[in-house]
Simulated scan of single mutants.
Amino acid sequence: MTTVADIQRALIARGYDVGRTGADNITGRATMAAIRKFQADRNLPVKYPGTVGPITLAALGLAADKPPEPGVAVDELVPPWVALARTKIGLHEKLNNKTLRDWLKSDGNTLGDPAVLPWCGDFMETVIAVTLPGEPLPANPYWALNWREFGQPIDIVALGAVAAFQREGGGHIGMIAGHESGYFHVLGGNQSNAVIITKIAKTRLSGPLRWPMTYSLPSEALPMRAIEATVSTNEA
């Protein structure tokens, strides 16, 4: 199975800098920049530079018959920040503390220990900063409600749309993974102390859904589909 480290080693072998920690199996900003440069240097016909699919794997000399990890090679319809976030599902702030802390600082910034501090904003900052290095981030991205000014508003429910929610004592930030009547399916951090998909009432949405400025706007809304998931009422 192709890993991030496999991709990093292939880039290093071709003279690309993936960061001071080398093939650390973490998709950080330096690795994403190296992928983008490699794709540009080879003039690879990829729809979303910085994501890795069959074309880039073949150019790196990685076996096409080795299925990549989720989020390493992504379907072109899945925004890269969603693909990266999916690979972190299940990480718990206490049970997987070191793994989670190391990843949250992989973009060069972090709020701190997720077992002590509210980290939904740190999670969102990391997935956006790593996969969209040129995207402007909100002032103090660790404060969830500041994401109401992120990017640009969109008027459809799209996969990966950034959603800020009101909660008692503050706010919460996550990304849209789906929706049904009355609820968004939200993929985010600090949801039951972990990275999971949970249901949040649409009435709690604070401001319009948002979309990055540096990524093409979605043209199709997600269809409604019910899922089995816990309904979250307060993500503190």
Rank of each mutant, 00 (worst) to 15 (best):
W119P: 03
W119Q: 14
G121P: 06
G121S: 10
G121Q: 01
D122N: 09
F123W: 14
F123R: 09
M124S: 02
M124K: 07
E125G: 14
E125H: 08
V127T: 11
I128P: 01
A129E: 01
V130G: 03
V130I: 11
T131N: 14
L132S: 00
L132C: 04
P133R: 02
G134T: 08
E135N: 12
P136E: 09
L137I: 11
L137Q: 09
L137Y: 05
L137C: 05
P138D: 09
P138M: 15
P138Y: 02
A139L: 08
N140F: 14
P141W: 05
P141K: 09
W143V: 07
A144L: 01
A144I: 02
L145K: 04
N146M: 02
N146H: 05
R148K: 14
E149F: 13
E149M: 10
E149W: 15
F150M: 03
F150Y: 08
G151C: 13
G151S: 04
Q152D: 15
P153N: 07
P153F: 15
I154A: 10
I156N: 13
I156T: 12
I156P: 03
I156D: 13
V157F: 13
V157H: 07
V157E: 09
L159P: 10
L159T: 14
L159C: 04
L159F: 12
A161G: 02
V162W: 00
V162H: 01
A163G: 05
A163C: 13
A164G: 04
F165G: 01
Q166R: 11
R167F: 07
R167W: 11
E168A: 11
E168C: 07
G169N: 03
G170F: 01
G170W: 00
G170N: 14
H172A: 01
H172F: 00
I173L: 06
G174Y: 01
M175Y: 12
I176F: 11
A177S: 05
A177M: 04
A177D: 02
A177R: 03
G178S: 07
G178N: 15
G178W: 08
H179K: 09
H179D: 13
E180N: 12
S181C: 10
S181W: 08
Y183I: 14
Y183C: 07
F184M: 14
F184T: 05
H185N: 15
V186E: 12
V186M: 08
V186Y: 06
L187N: 13
L187S: 12
L187A: 15
G188M: 06
G189S: 09
G189H: 04
N190W: 08
Q191G: 13
Q191C: 14
S192P: 11
N193F: 04
A194G: 10
V195C: 03
V195H: 00
V195E: 00
I196W: 10
I196H: 10
I197E: 06
I197V: 09
T198G: 08
T198L: 12
T198H: 06
I200E: 05
I200C: 12
I200D: 01
T203V: 14
R204E: 15
R204T: 12
G207V: 13
G207T: 06
P208N: 14
L209Q: 08
L209I: 12
L209Y: 04
L209M: 13
W211D: 01
W211K: 02
W211N: 00
M213T: 11
T214A: 13
Y215N: 11
